[in-house]
Design a protein around this nucleic acid. Structure first.
Lengths: 196, 196
DNA sequence: AGATGATATGGATCACTGATCCAGATAGTC
DNA sequence: GACTATCTGGATCAGTGATCCATATCATCT
């Protein structure tokens, strides 16, 4: 990779980060290229699709969320781990308005640059869910894809200006549906640190 | 209204109905105008915005759903009425891929042609919800807007090809969160026809 | 029936989107 | 310093919705 090409890649990525946080993932790629001081064609050669650009931009975040799931698996009770991770996921999506729509499309599109990351994320969630189900903390009739869909749906709500204010509350509502016995949230049992 | 104008309006509406059911609400307006055998400018004068076209197209459906809520209020138990109506709403949205996004935008945009219909729909749902809450059948910490958001979120899930297959199941999950005591669905009590 | 004027029409155009091409600029090597 | 493989970005293309306005059409009034 030539030095100038590398520099442009980085500038594009930086510009994309700013532009997307301001305008969401549907931002005009021409705008991004202009911000980066680069031609549109250059942006599109480095990142042939919007998904490719996002993958490069979100790669780290995806890895962190996936890793976080692994940590929680050993550091928290099954229920707390699941709920905490779900909260992290929904909180993360608020930074990238519209990202869940692309993720939902990518998870079944093997060609998408986001595919692998999305599948990994779903798998990480599925593990936490399975563990919670085994502990009797989560309802047994949902799987990783259901969890993915619920988080995506909550993220979608957060993306709608008119519904955004309800996102947090609805998170609690949906979580109460996932957890068995629908405990009132905040009704968390006095944190007995289970070692398992 | 001149006779030819009226004819064109109707042709556009018919074409829009077909096109939208095939391709969703984001269909190209040029396509619609071509199908209608009409210029794009003509379509846009009759329906200055996509929302206006949708409002004309969905007006009847909106009215029916709103009316249905009124009927259910007297014909079914509070719980059954609410659940049945929510099911009708989500089922309806599947006919118009992407419509909930526009509805979510319209409900707080007083200028939108869809605004009134969306507000009416939310109000109809709110009445059913309030009734169910009064009967102790629905959790008390949600309101009409929350309900609107949940239905919209479920509709969004149904719009995503990769998640569509889970929509029905997730409807049950979300409904279990809305209903107090999270009863297993299908665990409906032997239909005691309450008159109130 | 014919003339008149208000109304409706749709091709042309504009600004914007992402995608693609390719002549020219540039970096790295020898 | 010369040479080549690589990279660049202006130009262009087909698509989007929005807008303009000369023309065509309808409905009315004489």
């Amino acid at each position: 990779m030539r030095a100038d090409a590398k520099k442009n890649r980085e500038q594009v990525l930086a510009a994309a980060g700013i532009a997307i946080s301001e305008q969401g993932v549907d931002v005009s790629l021409r705008d991004v290229s202009r911000r980066a001081g680069v031609g549109l064609a250059t942006l599109l050669r480095h990142y042939p699709t919007r998904e490719a650009l996002l993958e490069a931009l979100l790669h780290t975040s995806f890895a962190e969320l996936t890793a976080k799931a692994g940590e929680l698996e050993t550091s928290s009770s099954p229920e707390e781990a699941l709920v905490s991770w779900l909260r992290d996921c929904t909180a993360w999506t608020t930074q990238y308005q519209g990202v869940t729509e692309l993720m939902a499309a990518a998870i079944e599109d093997v060609e998408s640059a986001l595919h692998a990351s999305c599948v990994a994320l779903r798998a990480a969630g599925a593990r936490l869910l399975t563990r919670a189900q085994a502990a009797g903390a989560a309802r047994a009739d949902i799987d990783g894809t259901d969890l993915f869909a619920l988080v995506a749906a909550l993220a979608w709500v957060g993306d709608q200006p008119s519904l955004e204010s309800r996102a947090d509350h609805l998170f609690d509502v949906v979580v109460s549906a996932i957890l068995t016995c629908a405990p009132v949230l905040g009704d968390r049992r006095p944190t007995e640190e289970v070692s398992s």
